[in-house]
Simulated scan of single mutants.
Amino acid sequence: MSKNIILIGYMGCGKSSVGRQLAKNRQMDYIDLDDYIEMKEKDTIREIFKNKGEVYFRKIEATYLQECLGSLKNTVLSLGGGTPCFGNNMQTIVEAINSPSVYLQTSIGELAKRLFTEKDKRPLIAHTKTVDELTEFIAKHVFERSQYYLQSQLKVSTNSKSVEEIVTEIGSLIEV
């Protein structure tokens, strides 16, 4: 079995839901990098962004990513949507031994539909007012980030699939 499985993709693609179920099905531990950062920093991601800024957040995010990949075993690790796109994070992810990365690809329309109702909880999109504005923001962001996401060893489309279907597909792609 793989040492770890790393889930990447844009916010709202299902990394947390899929990660929890994948870990349960494979009898692995589960860690969400954002939750790990909040635990280590004793503060919420929202407050870290607000009080210390994105540059500080991205710096500690890279540190905690390396910490997780260096110490975790038999764990499904869900990353924040921006994690692969900053510093050398994607290189760190790709080079992680026995830890395949899986890009959960989701259409722009599907992401906008999923994220609009919870946008106030997400610092990067909280400023958007309408579905169209959110859709435009997501489209631009996904375009900018796709060069990083596409470096993942595996790609799985999440459109119109249940969490269980996605988990099954990932399981079939990763050797036991």
Rank of each mutant, 00 (worst) to 15 (best):
K3S: 15
I6H: 10
I8M: 07
I8E: 06
Y10G: 01
Y10E: 05
M11V: 02
C13P: 00
S16Q: 03
S17Y: 01
R20Q: 11
Q21V: 12
A23H: 11
Q27H: 14
M28V: 02
M28Y: 10
D32V: 07
L33K: 02
L33S: 04
D34S: 03
Y36A: 01
E41F: 01
K42G: 02
E47S: 01
E47A: 04
E47C: 00
N51L: 07
G53C: 10
R58Y: 14
R58N: 10
K59M: 11
E61S: 15
A62W: 05
A62R: 06
T63K: 11
L65I: 05
L65Y: 08
L69A: 13
L69Y: 07
V76H: 10
V76W: 09
S78R: 15
G80F: 04
G80A: 14
T83E: 08
P84L: 08
C85W: 07
F86M: 13
G87S: 05
N88Q: 14
N89G: 06
T92P: 03
N98H: 14
N98S: 15
P100G: 10
V102S: 10
I108H: 02
I108R: 04
E110I: 03
K113E: 14
T117V: 09
E118I: 12
K119C: 05
K121P: 01
P123S: 08
A126L: 00
A126E: 03
K129H: 01
T130V: 11
V131W: 00
V131Q: 00
V131R: 03
E133Y: 06
T135I: 05
K140V: 05
R145A: 12
Y149K: 12
Q151P: 06
S152V: 02
Q153C: 03
Q153L: 11
K155M: 09
V156Q: 03
T158S: 04
S162C: 03
S162A: 09
V163Y: 13
E165F: 08
I166P: 01
T168N: 10
T168Y: 04
G171N: 14
E175F: 09
